[in-house]
Design a protein around this nucleic acid. Structure first.
Lengths: 354, 354
DNA sequence: TTGTATGCGTTATCAT
DNA sequence: ATGATAACGCATACAA
């Protein structure tokens, strides 16, 4: 039973005062080389673990973190991220964390710059960012680095950002998984890949899922499946349906559609209206619009990006870093969760509490 | 910006001392009805949230929790539970939690009683239990209740235990999910259900997975699939293979096997030795023995019981209850995770840290 | 450069 | 029954 060593103990062992110990531990300077050495020697021998409880109580600082992410009104996908952030916040508010929210239009550079500016104005001690726009995010990350503000990113992986931590999904592997699942459940024939609601411009990562998907099919299913990419962007609902119908005519043997974004429900609606029931549909994310079609069977599988957990972990990591000065993972890939009608509830139910 | 209220503030508002406030909040008695009322009145009006940081620092109590679960040497399934427990412990050790481990033979009542006795001897403030044996667990839970020791259970749901919290999987729904997946990936024909390594005696829950499985097939796949239950227990390896071969002869149209326990690797080994490659195999849990066969394709899907998370949450809940006196969920169902070759890594990789 | 003293919010131990 | 006061371990401001 090794007793816990406190700063007081270290001070005694080194024949100095607590103040000196504090100064060398946090290297605040103003210590003589002599004292420095004495304390270091002791630290080498013993295993000092600061009492984080006492530390936070004492230095009752308040930390401001700015959350910079797309407006859920413009894309429902982000709702759950926000929920995760709020969840983490309520659990950590004890530690003096306050969060300011800055929502931007995920496709507008101007909007992003405006909100990013506001975020910096709030004088944050840390920033949580969903970097949907590559170039804008890079510029912003540069400023954060200059100002020495810790930056944690989630959802969209951009290597050059080099944030303190990234939390998200391995998109290439995600594509491979989608292909594996599709080849399990679809009859041999044509598979369509479509990126609805994403802008290919200014998004280097956009192709990762498709690349992974095609890679898997090439390795394991090339004799049974043919993969085609189709663009299905259209402003109007009826226009969308028409262009889908058009695509299905061009590829008459279509047995499956893989939607790389959270917009599978758009396809589902159109498929239902077109009366096509023999096409397997795989998409992303547990947003309400998708769940309806997962429940009625038009969508066969959803891959969950766990965006609530992304938000939750983002805030958790920032508080770990800021208040506890704990090491945090540089890269945190979340599980590639497969969701069907039968395990859906296990992913969305909240529990009773006593 | 509502300021945080402290006990000192309450004391001032109620015209009493902090000591009195402390006594009514924790109803330690020794307060006059008059003072009691004054404090209560204040508490009604304001929203006092105790500072848990300060509380833990001050009271610096040590809590002992006893973990009572099967020996991983006897069943590798329990390895990850232990890992989860240790993980939670290392994260919470700051709060003065110490854990004593008591491993028993999951099929021996004597072994259980012995270890349970030891666990109680250690004078624990809380107990984490994997109740594999129904009757023994009920007896033990009775003692815990008598001695007022908080009990948290995981993995095996036994309703009458009525613990502070249960953490695990919805087994009936788990069976439904397995059936859904099986009907997705197997050709029409016979599906075998088998419970390897479980004793039906003294385990009321054992049938839940099979019931769920059959229920789903009845609802959605009765025209294409026939379900048969087979017993495949055998002490020796070659004996096991022989009885499997026997079962496959009895059911020549077998297209899939559903193993309700973590022993799917036993089937996989035998199938490989028998050279049968056209049978889909679905099992449970990411133990190493299973992963080998998931990677080489003999096992098609595994449902993950997340037993590491079960252990983790069990300890987390106990510390929340003991040190923070926070409310905890009575029933915590974990996700029914579907694991394939392509998303396996996302479930088992640990991350680098800076 | 160094050491001491005070405070963080709570619990626990004293005298009253 | 009540109120003052010393811990808990660390940070910080200030005195030496």
């Amino acid at each position: 039973m090794s007793k816990i060593v406190r700063m007081k103990d270290i001070a005694a062992m080194a024949n100095v005062s607590m103040g000196t110990v504090d100064r060398v531990i946090h290297n605040r300077g103003r210590v003589s080389a002599d004292a420095q050495k004495k304390v270091m020697d002791v630290l080498e021998q013993i295993n000092y673990k600061p009492n984080l409880i006492a530390r936070t109580l004492s230095s009752s600082r308040n930390y401001r973190v700015a959350a910079l992410l797309p407006d859920a009104e413009l894309d429902p996908f982000w709702r759950s991220s926000i929920q995760g952030i709020q969840q983490a916040h309520s659990e950590h508010s004890q530690f003096g964390i306050t969060i300011s929210y800055h929502f931007f239009d995920p496709y507008s550079g101007d909007s992003f710059r405006q909100q990013a500016h506001d975020a910096l104005e709030s004088g944050p001690d840390g920033i949580l960012l969903a970097p949907t726009l590559r170039q804008e995010a890079l510029d912003f990350a540069g400023i954060c680095r200059e100002q020495q503000i810790p930056l944690v990113c989630f959802n969209t992986y951009i290597h050059e950002l080099a944030p303190l931590a990234f939390i998200g999904q391995d998109l290439h592997q995600s594509g491979r998984l989608a292909a594996e699942l599709m080849t399990m459940i679809a009859a041999p024939g044509t598979i369509l890949v479509t990126h609805i609601g994403e802008q290919v411009q200014n998004s280097a990562h956009i192709g990762a899922k498709e690349t992974g998907f095609r890679e898997f099919v090439r390795e394991k299913g090339s004799s049974h499946f043919e993969v085609n990419t189709v663009q299905l962007e259209s402003p109007s609902r009826s226009g969308f349906k028409a262009s889908l119908a058009q695509a299905l005519e061009t590829h008459p043997h279509t047995k499956g559609i893989y939607v790389t974004t959270s917009k599978a429900y758009e396809i589902a609606r159109s498929l239902e209206e077109l009366g096509k029931t023999d096409i397997r549909l795989i998409g992303y994310d547990l947003i309400d619009e998708n769940l309806t079609h997962l429940r009625n069977g038009t969508i066969n599988l959803l891959i969950n990006q766990n965006s609530d957990r992304q938000g939750f972990l983002g805030i958790s990591y920032l508080t770990d870093h800021l208040v506890f000065q704990k090491p945090i993972p540089t890269l945190q890939y979340l599980p590639l969760s497969i969701v069907t009608r039968e395990n859906l509830n296990s992913y969305i139910t909240s529990q009773e509490v006593n």
